[in-house]
Structure formats: structure tokens, C-alpha cells
């Protein structure tokens, strides 16, 4: 167990620094660079807080589309396997397996996973 500040608290501090540098920038280029950096800190922070739940939800969605499979317990293994299962889903989409009526099963999953990605990457765009 690490001491405080926690990772999220450290990121908050870093983000505050970046925003301050953006506000007091010498020129447009520098302001933009620090704004982008502050945004990236925000992405990392939201990902730390939310991604665990989002990956489980994505796994459950893929179970419904590709058939159930036991979920890896370890986070890194889960990420690898999710990537592989998404590649399988792509193959099935490309082969036409989700054309026609089957599309109604696919679309809610696509919507949910992408809304969750956007909640991490650009929350202002989420809805």
C-alpha cells in the first residue's frame, strides 16, 4: 500500500499545474500545449477510476455476442483477451454474421462500449 497522496491525488496536482501554466502561457502555442497536457492527465485519471467497471461491462457484452467465457482475473490478461475478443467480433461483423436481424443484438453493445470510451476520453462529448 502506497502512502498518500494517491495516484489520483497526484494526477489532480499535476493537472492543476498544467492548467495554471496554460492560463499564464506566453503565447498561443504554449497555452494549447499545456491545455492538451491537462486533458491527457484528465483522461488518465478518469481511466483509473472507471475503466475497471467498463472492461467488465464490455466482457459481459462480448459474452452475449460471442458466447460466454470465463473472465481473466488479472487486469493485464483481461485487457489482452478483450483485444482478442474484439478482433473476433470484427471478423464476425465483416463476415456478415450481424447483418439483418442479428444487428439488433450488436448495436446496443457498440453504443455502450463507445459511450464508455468517450466518458473517459472526452466526457463533454458523451451525451
Amino acid at each position: 500500500m502506497q502512502d498518500r497522496p494517491t495516484a489520483v491525488e497526484l494526477l489532480d496536482a499535476l493537472g492543476g499545474f498544467m492548467r495554471d501554466r496554460a492560463e499564464n502561457a506566453r503565447d498561443r502555442w504554449e497555452r494549447f500545449q499545456f491545455q492538451v497536457a491537462a486533458n491527457s492527465i484528465g483522461i488518465i485519471k478518469r481511466e483509473l477510476e472507471l475503466e475497471d467497471g467498463f472492461m467488465r461491462a464490455e466482457w459481459a457484452g462480448l459474452d452475449r455476442l460471442l458466447g460466454a467465457e470465463e473472465m481473466p482475473k488479472e487486469q493485464a490478461a483481461l485487457a489482452v483477451r478483450l483485444g482478442e475478443r474484439n478482433a473476433e467480433l470484427v471478423e464476425q461483423i465483416r463476415s456478415g454474421a450481424f447483418d439483418g436481424e442479428a444487428e439488433a443484438r450488436l448495436l446496443p453493445h457498440l453504443w455502450e462500449t463507445i459511450v464508455n470510451k468517450v466518458r473517459v476520453a472526452s466526457p463533454n462529448e458523451a451525451l
Binding site: 500545449q33 483522461i43 457498440l110 459511450v115
Partner: peptide, 29 residues
């Protein structure tokens, strides 16, 4: 470039727009 790296995370909002424009958002959202 950290700026180019960050643009990579803008793919997601574009995918969301694609789903809105194709009516998926209205069907399931």
C-alpha cells in the same frame, strides 16, 4: 509528441458521432 498521442483518444468521440449519424443512438441510446 504528446499532442499527437492525445489525438489518438479522439477516435472514440468520432465513433460515437458515426453511431449517432447512422441512427444507432436513436435506436438504442
Amino acid at each position: 509528441s504528446h499532442e499527437l498521442a492525445a489525438i489518438g483518444r479522439r477516435t472514440a468521440e468520432t465513433e460515437l458521432e458515426i453511431l449517432r449519424l447512422t441512427g444507432v443512438g436513436a435506436r438504442v441510446g
